[in-house]
């Protein structure tokens, strides 16, 4: 790969790796990382959790959203070394005991998943929203999801899913 080769040529000096302690969906891990590794790389490549996606890698699409100590952050712009001692929740942590979380179920019920590439990020942003604000208005839902881009659904079904999950009188349409 052209870029990787030139990158190596420019920084030949070996940078120390270090061990970080990370709790992922309640499970403790000790992981060896380099400063340049992001949390998404660690989740996908070192822990094997493929739910969190890589997209723009520029902060501009939201597919990499995870909850870091409860706050929705962009995994593509979070260095793993900065997560030492912290707790991360990913889409794999939403279902409990084989039971989808209400927000996951509502996404299915509303047809809010098409290609599914944005879904993990949407679910994490929606989860953060509902933990902060259990009955958000439509305007609040749209504001909270402004950082998550979907190219398929047109967003209406996603907004409806969050209304359904928060018990605001929206009935399932896909059964």
């Amino acid at each position: 790969m052209l870029e990787a080769r030139s990158a190596q040529a420019q920084s030949p000096a070996a940078v120390r790796s270090r061990i970080i302690e990370l709790t992922v969906n309640g499970e403790r891990h000790e992981i060896l990382v380099k400063p340049r590794n992001t949390i998404v790389e660690v989740l996908r490549e070192k822990i094997g959790l493929m739910g969190t996606k890589h997209g723009c890698e520029q902060g501009a699409c939201g597919v990499c959203t995870v909850l870091l100590d409860g706050r929705a952050v962009l995994g593509c712009l979070t260095l793993a070394v900065e997560c030492d001692g912290k707790s991360v929740r990913t889409v794999e942590g939403l279902a409990q005991g084989g039971q989808l979380s209400p927000i996951q179920q509502a996404f299915l019920d509303q047809g809010a998943v098409q290609c599914g590439y944005c879904t993990a990020g949407m679910l994490m942003s929606a989860t953060a929203l509902l933990e902060r604000n259990p009955k958000p208005s439509i305007a609040e839902i749209k504001k909270a999801l402004e950082g998550n881009i979907c190219r398929c659904t047109g967003y209406n079904a996603i907004v409806a899913a969050i209304q359904q999950a928060s018990g605001q009188g929206v009935e399932p349409v896909m059964r």
């Binding site: 920084s11 940078v15 120390r16 380099k34 340049r36 992001t38 890698e57 070394v81 900065e82």
Partner: peptide, 11 residues
């Protein structure tokens, strides 16, 4: 992926 290495120091 960031394609080059750098040091990291927490303050």
């Amino acid at each position: 992926m960031i394609l080059f290495d750098f040091e990291y120091e927490p303050a």
